[in-house]
């Protein structure tokens, strides 16, 4: 049997968005090192249920770092200490025996706490709704190989498209800005030849919708550090440029440039 840990956990408990929350401290022994962070919480929940206490509410789904459902603030770091790793892929071997771990939900004014560690991230969908798509109806597509896309362009677009929408960038940002999320989607589509006809409108609408909910970027770079997909803040710069261009361009002329 692999070795185990004893931990002191301070976990945020809150019954609903309308009431105040507080920290509760739990002492745990014999936490397997091979367990993931969420499995550690599963174990804790089993114990709580056995004791007749309501289990801790936290969200997760795929548990392989791709669906973006999970996300906890662990010791002040979004998704915890391991770089490029979502909470579900964080394993307890990253911690030491006797560690104190503070667990909080994602926080931002636009993200209300639903219960305990679960947060409402629907404003991210509002940003996508504003223009995070290429308007092509089913059946209207030309042959897939009609437009070659340079290898490098496709790769860079992919780097942006890898975003899992977890909201760690907002959670980690001292300004609660969503620039990394928004710019990842804007740039994924703006880099692709297929995305050109809506490029300026997309940049304008998505950025302005983002600004209805989130703070303003001051280029700290915390988001890039917290991002489980390590998406670069270069995309933020490119989106800033696209946004300003969208305001300056005569879109009836040079939309393709």
């Amino acid at each position: 049997m692999a070795s185990t840990l004893s931990l002191t956990l301070r976990i945020w408990r809150q019954d609903s968005p309308q009431v105040k929350g507080h920290f509760v401290t739990y002492e745990m022994d014999d936490v397997p090192e091979d367990a993931s962070f969420l499995e550690m919480l599963d174990i804790l929940n089993e114990i709580l249920i056995a004791k007749g206490e309501e289990p801790i509410c936290f969200e997760s789904d795929c548990r392989e770092g791709i669906c973006g459902t999970c996300g906890l603030m662990i010791n002040g770091q979004a998704h915890g200490p391991q770089k490029g790793t979502a909470t579900c892929q964080l394993h307890m071997r990253q911690f030491k025996d006797g560690d104190h771990i503070v667990v909080e939900p994602w926080r931002a004014e636009a993200f209300s706490v639903i219960k305990d560690l679960a947060t409402d991230r629907t404003p991210l969908d509002a940003i996508i709704k504003a223009g995070g798509y290429i308007s092509v109806n089913t059946g209207a597509a030309p042959d897939a190989n009609l437009t070659p896309i340079p290898h490098q362009t496709a790769a860079t677009a992919f780097d942006a498209a890898a975003c899992i929408g977890c909201g760690a960038c907002v959670a980690a940002c001292p300004n609660s800005a969503a620039q990394l999320f928004c710019s990842a989607k804007v740039q994924h589509l703006n880099l692709m030849p297929q995305g050109q006809s809506e490029r300026w409108e997309r940049a304008e609408k998505m950025v302005e919708t983002m600004e209805e909910f989130f703070g303003s970027c001051t280029n700290h770079g915390e988001c890039e550090e917290a991002c489980p997909k390590e998406i670069s803040i270069d995309f933020i710069a490119w989106t800033n440029r696209d946004y300003i261009k969208s305001k300056l361009k005569n879109r009836s002329l040079f939309a393709q440039k």
Binding site: I134, V136, A140, A141, A144, P150, A154, A157, H188, Q194
Partner: peptide, 13 residues
């Protein structure tokens, strides 16, 4: 494949 490429899916190239 045509539809997905038109939507901007960044397939390997």
């Amino acid at each position: 494949i045509d539809q997905c490429v038109a939507q901007g899916v960044p397939f390997a190239r």
